[in-house]
Amino acid sequence: MEDKQYGLQDVVEMKKAHPCGTNRWRIIRLGMDIRIKCEGCGHSVLIPRKEFGRKMKKILVKHEE
């Protein structure tokens, strides 16, 4: 299985869209759980890292440090 490299402040696309209609999420916290924030409505969700890895489709914008 391919390990996708993502980091803080990256914008990712999830497999399912948010009810507001947007499919772009920004990673705002990394740890055992990952907090992502909807780019459309600003709602944030806390997801376990393993589940996030399964539900993430691709990285849209990679944050440069």
Rank of each mutant, 00 (worst) to 15 (best):
M1A: 07
E2K: 10
E2C: 00
E2V: 05
E2G: 02
D3E: 14
D3C: 01
D3H: 05
Q5V: 08
Q5D: 12
Y6H: 10
G7D: 13
G7V: 04
L8D: 06
Q9C: 12
Q9L: 15
Q9R: 14
Q9P: 00
D10F: 12
D10M: 08
D10R: 03
D10E: 08
V12G: 05
V12K: 03
V12E: 05
E13Y: 02
E13H: 02
E13R: 15
E13S: 10
E13V: 11
M14V: 05
M14I: 03
K15Y: 02
K15M: 03
K16Q: 12
K16V: 10
K16A: 11
A17V: 10
A17C: 09
A17L: 09
H18D: 09
H18K: 02
G21V: 02
G21P: 00
G21Y: 01
T22Y: 02
R24S: 11
R24L: 14
W25K: 13
I27G: 04
I28N: 04
I28D: 04
R29V: 09
R29F: 14
R29H: 14
R29D: 13
L30E: 09
G31Q: 07
M32W: 07
D33V: 11
D33T: 14
I34Y: 10
I34S: 06
I36F: 02
I36M: 09
K37C: 09
K37D: 00
K37I: 05
C38F: 01
C38H: 01
C38M: 03
E39M: 15
E39D: 13
C41Y: 01
G42V: 01
G42H: 01
V45D: 04
L46M: 13
L46K: 14
L46A: 12
L46T: 14
I47E: 09
P48Q: 14
P48L: 11
P48F: 04
R49I: 05
K50P: 00
F52G: 03
F52T: 03
G53M: 08
R54P: 00
R54W: 00
K55N: 10
K58P: 02
L60V: 15
L60S: 03
K62L: 06
K62A: 11
H63M: 08
E65G: 15
E65P: 13
